[in-house]
Nucleic acid binder design. Structure first.
Lengths: 261, 261
DNA sequence: GCAGTTGTTCGGTATTATCGAACTATAGTT
DNA sequence: AACTATAGTTCGATAATACCGAACAACTGC
C-alpha cells in the first residue's frame, strides 16, 4: 500500500503542477525544442503522463509545437507573461531613461540588475553603440560574486547573510580572476562599501571590465544596481574615472526617482 | 457516482495544471497582485485548492508574494522564461539592427510584430528619440485589423482564412476610423497587396499614424512585419513618402537576412 | 513493405487533488 | 485591550482524477 511513502516528504506540492513546471524548466534549456519522448526520458515520467500535461500546456500556449519537427518549445504565452512581469516593476520606468543617457555619454553597454534568490538577474540592458556587444541578456542569471552588479548588492549584506550566501551558492570561478575565497570577497566588499561602487575586472570574462553602482528603493534599501561594461582596453585611466563618476551619479539619480514615486 | 460527467467534456486536460494556468492568467490581469481569497472567489475554486497550487507555483518562482501586502503576483521565473522565448526567435536577431537603423533615420518608434492565433503580437520595440512615446509594449496583443502590422499580415490570407478570422475575432472598433466591415477590410487588404505596405491612420488611436511593411521568412512566407509609428502631424507629405520607402526597404533587408541564415 | 521509432489513446487502479470545515493569524473597531 | 471580522493555513475524509503500462496508430527510413 505504501509504496513510496517516505520518498519525498518535503512540503506538499501539487504533483501535476510541479511536473508541468519541470517540463517547462527542461524545455527552457533547449531552445531548439524537445520531443515528447526526450522529455519523458529526461524526467523519467511515462510518455502518457508527459503527453497529457503537454496537451494542456499547448492549449494555453505555454508550449508550442514546431511545425516541421513537431518538437515542443516554450510558447508565446510565456513571452507575454514575462513582459507583463517586467512592466510591473517601477524600477524599469525609473531607470531606463537614465540608463539611456548613460549609454549615450559613453556609448557602452548599460545593465540593470537585481538579486533574485542569490543570483544576479539582469532586468534590463541598453546595448553599446558599437558592434562588439557584451553577450549578456535580459532575464539571465549570473553568480553574484563575480559581476560588478552582484558585488554591489552583496556589499550590503550582513556577515551572517553573506555566510549563508556562500554556503548556498559557493564561489565558483568563471575566469582565473574570479574571487573564490571568503576572505578575499569580504575584503573586496569592504572596499566597495567604502568607495560606493564596484569594479569587475575580468571576473566573469577575461578582458571585460565593468563599473557598477547601487540603487536604493523607496525605503532606502539597496535592491538594484546599474553597471557599464566595456573592454578593458577601452576603460582605464581618466575615462574609467569619468565612467565611475557618472555611473554613481546615474544610480543616485535613479534612487531619487524611486523615492518620490 | 457520475456527478459531473457531462459538464465539460471537451478535450482532456489535466485539471490542476489547467487551474494553475488560469491562476497565472488572472494574475496577469492585475499587476498590483491579488490575495488568495480574491483569486479563489474570482475562479470559484475553494481557498485550499488555490492555496496548494499557489504554494507550488511560489516555490518555483512562477508567482511571488509581495512582502507588504502578501498579495500574489507573477514571479521572476516567468520573466526568465519569457526572455528565453524571445531569444529563441531568429527574427529578432535579424530585425533589431535594421530596426535600430530605421529608428535613427527618422527618430520614431519602430515595432516588430507577428501573428499569434489571430492577434497581433508585438515582438520588439525601439523607442522614439523624443519623449512622447507610443504607449505600446512588447508582449502585448492587439486586434489585427486595426494596426498597420496586423493589416500587412492579414493581407496575405486567403479569402477563406480571412473569413474564418473575422468570424472568430470580429472587427471591433477602437476609434471611429477603425475598419469594421468585411467589405471595407477586403478593399483595404487588396490595396495593401498592391502597394506592398500598409498605413494605419488613427485606427488604433486618434492622431496616430503608422506605416508597416511585410517580412518574409526563410521559406518566403510573410510571417512578420515592421512598422514606424508617429503622430499624424509628424508623418505626412514627403516625409511620409520617405518613411514608406525606407520601411519597405528595411523590411526587405530583414527578409533577405532570414533567407541566408 | 517492413522494422524501428515516436506519438496517441485507453482503461483499471489507487494515489492524490479536492473540498469543507476547523483553526490560526492578522487587522480593524469600540 | 478585548472583540469582531476577515484572511490565510492546516487537516482529513472522499472519490475523482492523475497516473501508468500496454496496446494502437502514425511516421520514417531502410
Amino acid at each position: 500500500m505504501e509504496k513510496k511513502t517516505n520518498k519525498t516528504k518535503q512540503s506538499s506540492h501539487i504533483q501535476s503542477v510541479e511536473k508541468a513546471i519541470l517540463i517547462l524548466d527542461i524545455l527552457s534549456k533547449k531552445n531548439e525544442g524537445m520531443s515528447l519522448t526526450q522529455i519523458s526520458q529526461k524526467l523519467k515520467y511515462p510518455k502518457s503522463t508527459v503527453h497529457g500535461i503537454l496537451a494542456t500546456l499547448r492549449d494555453y500556449k505555454f508550449v508550442e509545437q514546431s511545425e516541421e519537427t513537431g518538437n515542443y518549445k516554450l510558447g508565446t504565452r510565456l513571452f507575454e507573461l514575462g513582459n507583463k512581469v517586467a512592466r510591473s516593476w517601477d524600477i524599469r520606468d525609473a531607470a531606463i531613461p537614465i540608463m539611456k543617457k548613460l549609454n549615450k555619454q559613453f556609448g557602452e553597454t548599460v545593465h540593470l540588475g537585481a538579486e533574485d534568490n542569490g543570483d544576479m538577474l539582469y532586468l534590463e540592458k541598453i546595448d553599446a553603440n558599437h558592434l562588439i556587444n557584451i553577450s549578456s541578456e535580459v532575464g539571465v542569471r549570473l553568480p553574484m560574486h563575480c559581476s560588478g552588479l552582484g558585488k554591489v548588492l552583496l556589499a550590503q549584506k550582513s556577515p551572517a547573510e553573506l555566510k549563508r550566501f556562500i554556503n548556498q551558492k559557493g564561489l565558483p570561478a568563471l575566469t582565473r580572476r574570479t574571487i573564490t575565497t571568503q576572505s578575499a570577497l569580504e575584503k573586496e566588499l569592504e572596499k566597495i562599501r567604502k568607495q560606493g561602487y564596484a569594479i569587475d575586472d575580468g571576473e566573469i570574462m577575461e578582458g571585460l571590465r565593468c563599473v557598477a553602482a547601487p540603487i536604493k528603493d523607496a525605503n532606502g534599501i539597496i535592491r538594484y544596481a546599474i553597471s557599464i561594461s566595456a573592454q578593458v582596453r577601452d576603460l582605464y585611466g581618466t575615462r574609467l574615472n569619468q565612467v565611475i563618476q557618472e555611473t554613481v551619479r546615474a544610480a543616485n539619480q535613479i534612487s531619487k526617482e524611486l523615492e518620490n514615486l
